[in-house]
Computed example of a mutant assay.
Amino acid sequence: MLERRKTTRTPIAATGRVAFGLGPDIECTIRDVSDGGARLVFARKRVVLPGQFALEIEGEWPRLSCRVVWRAGFRAGVRFVRPGESALRPVVRPSARMAG
C-alpha cells in the first residue's frame, strides 16, 4: 500500500467527540494522530458524519477543525483544516502550569 502521509503518525487511544452543532455529539476513539490529521474509530458502522466538523479530544487538547478524507466501516480519516493546527501539541491551561 502506498503511504501518502507527509508526516509520521503517533499511535494514541484517546476518547473524542465529533461536534457539528446539529444534534448530539458523536463519541469516537482516536487511534493515531499526525500534524495533518487523525484516524477515528466509531462504535457503530453507520455513523453519519458531516464533511467538516470540530473534534474534541479528551484531556489537554485543543478543539480541532476537521474534514473527512476517507471512510471505511467503523473508521474515518480526517485532515485538520486550519494550517498549523495539530493534535500533537496539547494545550497547557493556566491551572496545569507549575507555580514558579
Results as ranks from 00 to 15, higher is better:
P50G: 08
W70R: 09
R44Y: 07
I57D: 03
G16F: 00
G84T: 05
P50V: 07
T15M: 12
L40E: 04
G37M: 05
E27N: 11
P24N: 14
E85Y: 06
T7A: 12
A96Q: 14
V69H: 00
F20L: 02
A38L: 02
S86W: 07
G36L: 13
L2V: 13
A76N: 03
R97C: 10
E85G: 05
I12K: 02
V41E: 15
Q52M: 13
F53D: 02
D32N: 15
L55V: 04
V91Y: 10
I30K: 00
I57T: 00
P24D: 12
P11G: 08
L64E: 04
P24W: 08
G59T: 03
V41W: 06
A99T: 11
F74V: 04
R67D: 01
I57Y: 00
E56P: 02
A19L: 15
V33C: 06
S34T: 06
I57L: 11
S34E: 01
V91A: 10
R67P: 03
V68G: 08
A72R: 15
I12P: 01
W61N: 15
K45Q: 13
R46S: 15
A14Q: 13
S95A: 15
A76Y: 00
V41Y: 04
V92A: 12
F53G: 06
S65V: 00
I30G: 01
A38T: 05
V78K: 03
W61D: 09
L40I: 01
P62G: 11
E58W: 01
P90C: 12
G84Y: 06
F80I: 04
V18N: 02
T10L: 12
R82D: 09
V68A: 01
L2C: 10
T8E: 14
R5H: 08
V91L: 11
P90E: 13
A99E: 13
V68C: 09
M1S: 12
F80G: 00
G36A: 15
M98C: 11
V68M: 05
T7L: 10
V78E: 00
R89A: 12
P62V: 05
K45P: 04
E60Q: 15
G59P: 03
G77L: 02
I12S: 01
A87F: 07
M98V: 15
F20Y: 15
R5V: 05
G21V: 06
E56Q: 13
S86L: 09
L2Y: 10
I26L: 12
C66A: 05
V33E: 01
P94H: 10
F42E: 00
P24F: 07
C66V: 02
V18Y: 00
I30E: 02
L22D: 14
P94M: 08
R93S: 11
T8S: 14
R89Y: 09
C28A: 09
R75K: 09
D32Y: 03
R9S: 09
T10H: 11
R39G: 01
R97K: 14
G16Q: 01
E27Y: 08
V41P: 00
T29N: 08
I26N: 03
T8V: 08
D25P: 05
R63Y: 01
A76G: 07
R5K: 10
K6P: 00
R97D: 11
P62R: 10
D25T: 06
E60M: 09
R67L: 04
M1P: 09
L55Y: 03
D25R: 02
V92F: 06
R63P: 04
G23R: 14
